[in-house]
């Protein structure tokens, strides 16, 4: 039962690979922008799902790692002249480090207390960064145009960023699958169902939770760097949007938490729906209300999410839709 022989392992990868590849071949700016947003949320939701779906810990302010990592990567890149690749990994590493330190303390809290603490951390980080001189305080930072020169101008830099995001998304999906199907992941799922019982069975819950928190914080840091590099600026209001954090949760829930494919499906569906509502003449003004209504219906009536629902109905597909 090696993982590279499993359809469930390849299915999400092939889908994302083909789609990203097609965007690169078509080489149209508008398609790339749409694809960038969807891929970004896919990767963010999948990262969140590694914590939320496998351990059951609801990280409500997960966007803090996108913000802090993005800020750090952006700083390394535009103020210190690091290459994009290194800066992004640096941003991810910082997010991971913060998650390690914060996690040691916060992961002792359970249920809603943990969720509230993560909101507090995000708000505290936002307020801190707004006052932090090296990061430009409340106005944030702008990309030094010379930074784009290295990638053959601003236009080419956007394609480079997209390619990097595409690869990151593939890596997140691989990691998500491997975590789920490892001995480590089995321990996480035991924690999700009953943490005390898991510890009695020998699962080192504090360590396992902290490692998972670090993994799920690392990728948002990379993605944040790419996103703000693409935008050309970073500011506290964009970096620590609680609203975006909740959208990540919604995507995981839509697709099915605890599945590899779920966050992918959820991100695509959510972004597709939002795009439709925003452009539709009937719903344009009401897009938020309609999105809320749909979310409510799903939570009330399809709590397992799309992938979870299909897996429950058609057991034969369990091996395919991981």
């Amino acid at each position: 039962m090696k993982f590279w022989r499993q359809t469930g392992f390849w299915l999400p990868l092939v889908l994302v690979f083909l789609w990203g590849g097609a965007v690169l071949v078509l080489r149209q700016d508008t398609i790339r922008e749409t694809a960038f947003t969807v891929l970004m949320f896919m990767a963010l939701a999948s990262s969140l799902n590694i914590l939320l779906g496998y351990t059951g810990y609801v990280s409500f302010g997960h966007i803090v790692f996108f913000g802090l990592g993005g800020y750090t990567g952006f700083y390394l890149l535009s103020e210190q002249g690091w290459p994009l690749y290194l800066a992004a990994v640096g941003g991810g590493a910082l997010s991971g480090l913060i998650a390690l330190l914060v996690g040691l303390a916060v992961l002792r809290l359970r249920g809603a207390y943990f969720a509230l603490a993560t909101i507090g951390i995000n708000e505290a980080a936002r307020a801190f960064v707004s006052n932090f001189g090296p990061f430009g305080g409340a106005t944030g930072m702008f990309v030094n145009f010379s930074a784009y020169e290295k990638y053959g101008g601003a236009g080419q830099a956007l394609w480079t960023t997209f390619t990097f995001l595409w690869i990151t998304t593939l890596v997140v999906l691989v990691v998500s699958y491997l975590v789920k199907h490892s001995r480590f992941g089995l321990g996480l799922q035991a924690i999700r169902e009953d943490e005390d019982a898991a510890m009695v069975m020998g699962v080192h819950a504090p360590r396992a939770k902290t490692i998972t928190y670090v993994i799920s914080a690392f990728f948002p840091g990379i993605i944040g760097t790419l996103y703000f590099f693409k935008n050309g600026n970073v500011e506290p209001g964009d970096a620590f949007q609680l609203h975006m954090s909740i959208e990540m949760l919604v995507m995981v829930m839509l697709g099915g938490m605890g599945t590899v494919l779920g966050p992918m499906v959820g991100a695509t569906a959510y972004q597709g729906l939002r795009g439709y509502l925003l452009t539709s003449p009937i719903f344009k003004d009401l897009h938020l209300a309609v999105a809320g209504l749909i979310l409510l219906l799903i939570i009330l009536f399809v709590p397992a999410g799309a992938v979870g629902w299909v897996r429950g109905r058609i057991p034969a597909l369990r091996k395919v839709l991981e």
Partner: peptide, 10 residues
Amino acid sequence: MVGACFGREG
């Protein structure tokens, strides 16, 4: 398997 993975023999 949770028992077997995390028990004495790991």
